[in-house]
Amino acid sequence: MNTQGKAFKYGDNVDTDVIIPARYLNTSDAKELSKHCMEDIDTSFVDKICAGDVMVAGWNFGCGSSREHAPLVIKTCGTGCVIAKSFARIFYRNAINIGLAILECEQAAEEIGAGDEVFVNFDTGIIENKTTGKTYQAQPFPPFVQNIIQKGGLLASIAAEKKG
């Protein structure tokens, strides 16, 4: 699996309150929620994002609330992958569980610029900045996590195991 698109760049500690403000959480409809993705720090994100684009951020991406609505709206907007220096643990877990591709790679997160064209191969963890020609190797997921992703998320993997 892979994705290619332009980079949207953010800083450290992007929290789930700015990814999807709680004032909209009176619904669990992902399409409706995704209209407000990132709006408290980037009002133009929703209009500019195209399928396959890549979000690039600093340390502790997705900190704060456990709301799964956060990775869900990022995915629903069409984001192909989030690359960050590190992820807050609940966001990391939620992203795996719902099948949003995320990669930890400090150097890529540091060097990729806003608007750069980025190609990501999830199987190998290789990130290629097409604009600068630089490539990066992200931390691969442990096999246990890869299995969840391959099965299409946590619940699908549990259901598959039950069926044997």
């Binding site: 609330s65 799964e68 609940i90 877990r93 569980n97 619940l155």
Partner: peptide, 23 residues
């Protein structure tokens, strides 16, 4: 608990952690 502040119950000597809705 599908709420990040589920870590509160550690005060009682429990292992308690926040997760998402799928968990």
């Amino acid at each position: 608990g599908a709420d990040s502040h589920t870590c509160t119950y550690g005060a009682l000597g429990a292992f308690s952690t926040g997760v998402g809705s799928t968990d």
